[in-house]
């Protein structure tokens, strides 16, 4: 299959997942969230981090692995300040109340990652009739590219190429309110495309 065909198929696969994930985020934040059409990129490109402020940008987020009929990786990342605003919205606090990634903030972001990431995985499972299990979330707090790159490495260590789907969420002010990254393991690409066909 050509890269173009692969990108086209996976973009279609990711669309419903991104919509459901965005709806989950919208519900938690109690505000409208715009969902961009998902991107699919092949290869170890650094532009995956552009939506959260670039390579060295400090992000807060969560990581989940997928097991079951297909395996892979899911990350939800926020620029740190956006994440702290999200925590205030989720907890019904006055904006600006959360000023650092303390225990409460991290636990809220973990929950956010859990709900939004699982929404994507469950959409994939429903649409493609697969059995998929998202893992419990791991909290992430680091430079964006360090996280993205570690997922690239994990995928590529199994051989093949890295294929990453992303969905950008935007708040009402047009600011990035989350970046969802999903990368199937190389052995799962073929089965994923087969059931998507």
């Amino acid at each position: 299959m050509t890269d173009e065909k692969l990108i086209e198929t996976l973009t279609a696969v990711a669309k419903d997942g991104a919509t459901r994930a965005g709806r989950g985020l919208s519900g938690l934040m109690g505000q409208e969230i715009a969902i961009h059409v998902p991107n699919v990129r092949v290869g170890t490109k650094a532009d995956a981090c552009d939506a959260v402020g670039g390579e060295e940008s400090l992000v807060l987020g969560a990581y989940l692995s997928i097991s079951g009929d297909i395996t892979g990786h899911v990350m939800l990342l926020f620029p740190e300040l956006r994440a702290l605003e999200c925590v205030d919205l989720m907890c019904g606090q006055k904006p600006g109340s959360t000023t650092e990634a303390d225990e409460l903030a991290q636990s809220a972001i973990g929950e956010l990652g859990n709900i939004v990431g699982s929404a994507f995985v469950n959409a994939l499972a429903d649409d493609l009739n697969l059995i998929l299990h998202p893992s419990p979330p791991t909290i992430l707090h680091d430079m964006a590219i360090a996280l993205v790159q570690s997922v690239y490495a994990e995928v590529l260590s199994q051989g093949g190429d890295v294929v990453m789907m992303d969905a950008v969420f935007e708040d009402q002010k047009g600011r990035t309110a989350g970046l969802l990254l999903v990368a199937p393991d190389p052995a799962s690409i073929e089965p994923l495309l087969r059931v998507a066909a």
């Binding site: 791991t138 997922v151 994990e154």
Partner: peptide, 19 residues
């Protein structure tokens, strides 16, 4: 060579250590 995806995944992946 860090394990940035958390301690649980560090055990599983070990890419940093192997690098």
């Amino acid at each position: 060579g860090a394990a940035v995806l958390g301690p649980a995944n560090a055990e599983k992946f070990k890419i940093g250590e192997r690098n």
